[in-house]
Amino acid sequence: MSAPDELRSVPTESPEVAAARARTRRRRSIALALVLAALVIIFYALTIVKMGPAVFDRTI
């Protein structure tokens, strides 16, 4: 039992459309990486602020 002809023939996209999709994916990936890096920096800074200045005092 095989699939109908409409399902078997998958249309291929033109090189221009493929390039546009690749550019869109790249921009989205860069934006997500920047947001993730910003969140990491914010969480790190908040952790240091919540600990207070005593965290840098290492006199034992």
Results as ranks from 00 to 15, higher is better:
1 M>V: 12
2 S>F: 11
3 A>H: 03
6 E>F: 13
6 E>C: 04
6 E>Y: 11
6 E>T: 04
7 L>T: 06
7 L>I: 10
8 R>G: 00
8 R>C: 08
8 R>Q: 13
8 R>P: 00
9 S>E: 14
9 S>M: 10
9 S>K: 14
9 S>H: 10
10 V>H: 10
10 V>R: 12
10 V>W: 09
10 V>K: 14
11 P>K: 09
11 P>G: 03
12 T>Y: 04
13 E>S: 04
14 S>F: 03
15 P>Y: 02
15 P>E: 13
15 P>M: 07
15 P>A: 10
16 E>F: 02
16 E>G: 08
17 V>K: 14
17 V>T: 12
17 V>G: 00
18 A>D: 06
20 A>D: 12
20 A>R: 15
21 R>W: 07
22 A>T: 07
22 A>F: 03
22 A>S: 11
23 R>H: 11
24 T>S: 14
24 T>K: 14
25 R>S: 04
28 R>P: 00
28 R>T: 05
29 S>P: 00
29 S>G: 12
29 S>V: 04
30 I>S: 07
30 I>E: 15
31 A>Y: 02
31 A>K: 09
32 L>A: 14
32 L>I: 11
32 L>M: 13
32 L>H: 11
33 A>T: 11
34 L>Y: 13
35 V>S: 12
35 V>F: 06
36 L>C: 15
36 L>F: 14
36 L>S: 15
36 L>D: 05
36 L>Q: 06
37 A>Y: 07
37 A>K: 02
37 A>M: 11
38 A>D: 03
38 A>G: 15
39 L>A: 15
39 L>D: 03
39 L>E: 10
40 V>F: 14
40 V>N: 06
41 I>Y: 10
41 I>S: 14
41 I>C: 13
41 I>A: 15
42 I>C: 13
43 F>N: 07
43 F>A: 15
44 Y>V: 08
45 A>D: 02
45 A>G: 08
46 L>K: 01
46 L>C: 12
47 T>P: 01
47 T>K: 09
47 T>D: 14
48 I>H: 02
48 I>A: 08
49 V>C: 07
49 V>T: 06
49 V>W: 09
49 V>K: 08
50 K>M: 04
51 M>C: 01
52 G>K: 04
53 P>G: 03
53 P>K: 05
53 P>A: 06
54 A>F: 05
55 V>I: 12
55 V>E: 01
55 V>P: 01
55 V>C: 02
56 F>Q: 02
56 F>T: 07
56 F>K: 06
56 F>W: 07
57 D>N: 15
57 D>G: 01
58 R>C: 00
58 R>Q: 07
58 R>D: 05
58 R>S: 08
